[in-house]
Design a protein around this nucleic acid. Sequence first.
DNA 1: TATGAATGAGAATTCATTCAT
DNA 2: AATGAATGAATTCTCATTCAT
Lengths: 215, 215, 215, 215
Amino acid sequence: MSSNLFQEILLSNASKLSVKQERIVEAAIQLFAEKGYSNTSTAEIAKAAEVSEASIFKQYGTKEKLLLHLIVPRVKEFFPVMAEEVIGSIVRTNSSLEGFLRAFLQNRVQFALENKDILRVLIKELVYKEEIKKEILPYLADVAASRLLPVIELFQERGELAQLPPRTVMRMLFTFIGGFFASRFVLLNQDHVTNEEIEDAVRFMLDGIRNPSSD
Amino acid sequence: MSSNLFQEILLSNASKLSVKQERIVEAAIQLFAEKGYSNTSTAEIAKAAEVSEASIFKQYGTKEKLLLHLIVPRVKEFFPVMAEEVIGSIVRTNSSLEGFLRAFLQNRVQFALENKDILRVLIKELVYKEEIKKEILPYLADVAASRLLPVIELFQERGELAQLPPRTVMRMLFTFIGGFFASRFVLLNQDHVTNEEIEDAVRFMLDGIRNPSSD
Amino acid sequence: MSSNLFQEILLSNASKLSVKQERIVEAAIQLFAEKGYSNTSTAEIAKAAEVSEASIFKQYGTKEKLLLHLIVPRVKEFFPVMAEEVIGSIVRTNSSLEGFLRAFLQNRVQFALENKDILRVLIKELVYKEEIKKEILPYLADVAASRLLPVIELFQERGELAQLPPRTVMRMLFTFIGGFFASRFVLLNQDHVTNEEIEDAVRFMLDGIRNPSSD
Amino acid sequence: MSSNLFQEILLSNASKLSVKQERIVEAAIQLFAEKGYSNTSTAEIAKAAEVSEASIFKQYGTKEKLLLHLIVPRVKEFFPVMAEEVIGSIVRTNSSLEGFLRAFLQNRVQFALENKDILRVLIKELVYKEEIKKEILPYLADVAASRLLPVIELFQERGELAQLPPRTVMRMLFTFIGGFFASRFVLLNQDHVTNEEIEDAVRFMLDGIRNPSSD
DNA sequence: TATGAATGAGAATTCATTCAT
DNA sequence: AATGAATGAATTCTCATTCAT
């Protein structure tokens, strides 16, 4: 029943939100980020947004649709943008693999910090809610793969990247980057990420932990 | 209020469970693993376990205590064991860093597959439930650090491991391994892990993705 | 935790109640009066009031708050009024001690009969529920003392009242009048009080049981 | 269904209680006295008595029977004794009305203090529980009347007591004494009663509050 | 005699949702 | 467009009671 909700909302062009609707969205994001969708009642959202519960339902129909209305537009905005703005531009500037990874991570961390709450909601519900997972995970995987694989292949052609199957490289990067975002923003609830941390991460992705001079 | 629950249960020696009580535990683990603690009602658990709801509460007092009674003993069992059995033994056999990582990952993946549901519960609630996170995460971090840091230092002395701050190495490994377990067992809900996957992971942790011959 | 409930409700100006809300109040008073707060379920109240249980909780939050919302406004109304309307006016008309006691008792009995159920609730819970006792008894004692002591002193000045410590007189009167109301309206559940009973009571308060001509 | 319970227990000769049974009785009396029968669970009693809940039910069948087993034997012991020991003896010693009232009140206050908890239970449940009231109140009234009326008539013959209908005198005394006990031991939960208080009460019962020299 | 284990029937409370105004 | 009022269906938890051992 909810399997088409994601598509629906994905394709719909979000109309401008009124002041009250904006308040609902903000309150919901914040509460969902903190306590999770399942542990947040519509009454709490209404109170935090200073609107009536009825208004929420008038606007969004069900609590689940509200969740999707929060997540989907940001997901749409998050990953596709990754393609053009981030990857494309960087690659064309003939940057090194290291430069690319650094810029990519910096850029996405920046974005995550600016959208921290919605990211927390996304990660939490991706882990917790089967419906969300089933709807969004394949989409994320597809989009991300279509953006990242060409880059990986490009760097392999340039000889900067180990000759592993591109999908293997991608999987490793996703595993690490996913772990990075989940641990920093959800588990540790960090409000900022130091340059050092980013450098460590870039270094790890590039070279791992082995002492290169050990033979 | 619940901050002592963890300690309490951690220190308590679980008494033997009757058949019905065993059924409660199994049903709860399975349901929590699938739908999450917050989306599982005690009525569902009772039905799945074929006991009365009252029996659950007689035994565990509250739903939250039930959750902790599922998680805590396994967490106790999971990590400390890591020290002696896994790390210790492996290190003493003078194995290489690569051998250690491979054995470690194989061993923990094996353990995870044997305790998949409880691991899923743990990861889900670690991400979702503030109380669980606050109680268990520091404990996990402590135990894990006390086990892993000596190993890291050992391999650094042997010159096999890059001369990075041990805590940095540890953080990177946790990030990756955490991402590995969370993605495989929670997001993808895999029932097995191929050798290839493990080899890829070991390779990535050791050497990253850079082409070593690129200079 | 409930110690501020009384104050809260005491100070709050009850808003107008809808028809259904009025029905809740009536049903609750009647049931609490008959069976006591602790032996009345919210389901029973809902059924008697022909509303849903949810409506009760939407309106009052908890069962205990409902109880206080029944009691407090009436207590407020009951005793202060005693001051101006009853005592004040009577005293100023230069009535005798006997006339005062008679009028006072008649007036309060009249009031009690008109508010019999709520009085029964009050007395029952005053006796039974520590929280109610702790919150309301001191308030009742204060208000009553502040009204009655001046009257006692006035009649002592006039020489109509025995030269006993005013507080002693007050305590005796409270003991007797409290016993009178509790026995008549709670124990015996009387629906009316005869003039004869009032006269007997007035006589007893004034002169006790001793034969005055016995010396 | 419970209307014969009282008679049953009243007529049964209580057998000696075992140690555990004694503990049950003590725990129940104390808890009922504090929180009331309706707000005390059998689980609490079992815990306080350090026996199993099953033992309580084995012994007493139902919670209500337990209550009656606590109350009835003491009520039996309380009032009949009043006849012989208290009233009879005092009257025959040709004591004055004042002496009688003083001795009576002193004696019953003493008894009440020695059995404070059971008295609190009795008063609370008399006020709160219809079944208890219906069963015990008539019995109390009967016994008390049969003891007190002869005394009243005796003092009237001696001319010490006002020439009022004996039942009227009795009712006034009950009202006052009931109010005295209820307020001191239940509402105020006093642990002792001063001589002064007793003197004040005796004085009030005898002479009321009127200034005798006012004519 | 004593009790550990189990439970059916309720209890208070919460929740997402509807609808008339 | 917004909401106050209302609720059916759960939800967590409690309770007196039973019974096999």
